[in-house]
Design a binder for these strands. Sequence first.
DNA 1: ATCATAACTGATGATATTGTCAACTATGAT
DNA 2: ATCATAGTTGACAATATCATCAGTTATGAT
Lengths: 224, 224
Amino acid sequence: MASRSSAIAAVALEREPRGTRRKRETRAKLLSAALRLMAERGAEGVTVSEITEAADVGFGSFYNHFESKDAIYRALVDTVFDEFADWLDAVLKDVNDPAEVVSASVRHTILRAKREPVWGLFLIREGFSPDAIDRGLGLRLLRDIKKGLAAERFADGDVFMYFVAVSGTVLASIAATSSIAHRFSTKDLPERCAATVLQTLGVERTEADEIARRPLPSSKRSYA
Amino acid sequence: MASRSSAIAAVALEREPRGTRRKRETRAKLLSAALRLMAERGAEGVTVSEITEAADVGFGSFYNHFESKDAIYRALVDTVFDEFADWLDAVLKDVNDPAEVVSASVRHTILRAKREPVWGLFLIREGFSPDAIDRGLGLRLLRDIKKGLAAERFADGDVFMYFVAVSGTVLASIAATSSIAHRFSTKDLPERCAATVLQTLGVERTEADEIARRPLPSSKRSYA
DNA sequence: ATCATAACTGATGATATTGTCAACTATGAT
DNA sequence: ATCATAGTTGACAATATCATCAGTTATGAT
């Protein structure tokens, strides 16, 4: 085990010099700390020194990687919204039924929010900001809804309303988990949310339930 | 017309001494300025001096009314979420059909967000914050959904999912208006959103469309 | 008209935050 | 082993923000 992991480390070293790795890790620590703090208190409510302290790096290091607080925030939005959309595309590239694509996307999103509450918090906090909808996750959803309509898989209807209904329902599901949810069960929330969304898109109730419970196409690879 | 309104003003003066009115107006100016600034930049991203400057009152006046930035923010949440819920209750008190209550609530909410974009911005910015769902608007919606289920007006289903679907769809409608909406028409958005929401609750499509287009019970009185 | 009270005001000192920089350390090439 | 380079670091000065307070103005009762 030890020899195996050091062999892996050796290979990694060969590909990526220590210096480069060190820099990348500092940047990653800053991004991760900023994600947590900004999700909890909002982008503006966090100071640079709080970020560097939480990341356990020197104050000055921040400015080696980002020119301002706003810059790290923008980098964060890119990471959260775009990288996850790319990951979804990779995981679901072989799924042909648009209904199943939407269902699996919804489930993966809610699952990740549950596994990484900070990620979920950031998603709901920034998901409605005017310049955030028009990005990775949103564009991807719009595309899938159009596909489903073209294939007559969804009931003939209003693309725009379908889009806001699906995105809004998913975000609200995640948000409600940490507020009123104490009075409700959130067991099987990914599946229940997927089923509700499919019904809104006009899929028959029993079929919606069935699709929402299918084995979830997944991946061993981490999100980013 | 002029004599009528000055008569009203005279009565108001009699009931409310100038001093009291002055104080109330200062407070109102502060709240209104804070609403605009916090909606645009987030609660934490605004300074007290920015608020007093925008409100056109002295810096020190702020602390006559609120003990901190956080205090004015909380007062704002109360205003936005609770007063509007009370207003909705007053306007819709004579409507008996739960489907029509939900439809009219949805339409009024979107209409107000359109008339007062700052109000809408604040609603979507704070509507998902963990302690904001569990307030006026949210509790009211929950109550109406339960009523509709008890009356078997909505399809038998998951109260929690119904709640998040309706609230999420409304918030996302408002949010999308100022982002991706440039590629879609938002004509009749209140009605389209109400119809979508009713369908999600299990109301038949043609009936949902009809309810969503009924004359909207309204009121001459302002919201607050 | 006079006065006590309530509300407003901006200057002030205390504190917090920012962005820069010169010194320091780790890295990897020679 | 030596050295140039890249990356890290915290101290520092400049600036921003906060909360208080003593002085001012408006109000309304006598």
